[in-house]
């Protein structure tokens, strides 16, 4: 299958590993990945901050960048939700976007990608993945199949981490208070790695875990699924 990769602006600038991981997993499964180089940003930060008008050219550009592809996969639940929920209104059409784990399980029918990752991992279901995309247990099903991986339950997993896009700076104090509780729960599990399907949320919780020198790191689920046996 020929699959378009929507990297997202955040991953493009700061988290190259997530994009590389998606490509590795899809190619390992025998699919062809296409990366339209002109792609930039879905406009979510603008849209959610109240700059709807500024978002329209970005949405139109997205549609043009990925035209002709039947499947566009992204390692970001919130960007996929942005496109799926709002593009019909902003750009007149809704491109066929899929969150990475959703694509693996629902479209490709894969629940074991043949990865190995001998570490203790806990999983945070990010809000847009959980409530807008209804990812359910797709990410954890994939993680459970990874050789050597021990998946630990995260207390109050469904509670928001406090990132919230520009909320993280507009309401930095509340954002940090929420992130602190999330990070504390992560540490309480004894996990070495906190995994999620959104690097934005991981950047926030990971930023706290790093500032505290906790020794627990964050990884995108795709990176774990790309780990070689």
């Amino acid at each position: 299958m020929r699959v378009g990769l929507f990297l997202t602006c955040l991953n493009d600038a700061l988290f190259p590993a997530a994009g590389k991981a998606v490509v590795r997993v899809l190619e390992r499964l025998g699919h062809e990945v296409v990366f339209p180089a002109g792609q930039t940003c879905c406009g979510q930060a603008h849209f959610n901050t109240g700059y709807r008008r500024e978002c329209v050219p970005l949405a139109r550009k997205f549609v043009a960048d990925f035209a002709g592809l039947d499947h566009v996969v992204s390692p970001s639940a919130s960007c996929v939700a942005m496109v799926r929920e709002n593009y019909r209104e902003l750009a007149g059409q809704s491109p066929p976007v899929f969150e990475f784990t959703e694509f693996l399980v629902d479209v490709l029918g894969v629940t074991d990608v043949g990865a190995a990752f001998p570490h203790r991992v806990t999983y945070h279901p990010t809000c847009h993945g959980l409530r807008l995309l209804d990812l359910g247990d797709r990410p954890t099903t994939l993680l459970r199949a990874v050789r050597g991986l021990r998946l630990l339950d995260l207390p109050d997993a469904a509670h928001c981490c406090g990132f919230g896009g520009t909320f993280a700076v507009k309401n930095a104090d509340t954002s940090v208070a929420m992130g602190t509780d999330k990070a504390r729960h992560v540490l309480s599990t004894g996990a070495e790695v906190l995994a999620a399907v959104d690097n934005s949320c991981l950047m926030h919780v990971g930023g706290l875990l790093s500032r505290w020198r906790s020794g627990t790191r964050v990884m995108h689920v795709a990176e774990i699924l790309a780990s070689d046996p």
């Binding site: 988290f15 296409v34 992130g179 926030h204 990971g206 930023g207 500032r211």
Partner: peptide, 30 residues
Amino acid sequence: KWTEARDLPVPSGETFREWWANREGPSGRP
């Protein structure tokens, strides 16, 4: 406001685009 309480990730190694342009693989090039 971000860095008051949180560290930022510092990307290391190749960017995605450098990696994509330089690698040899089965997928189509941009």
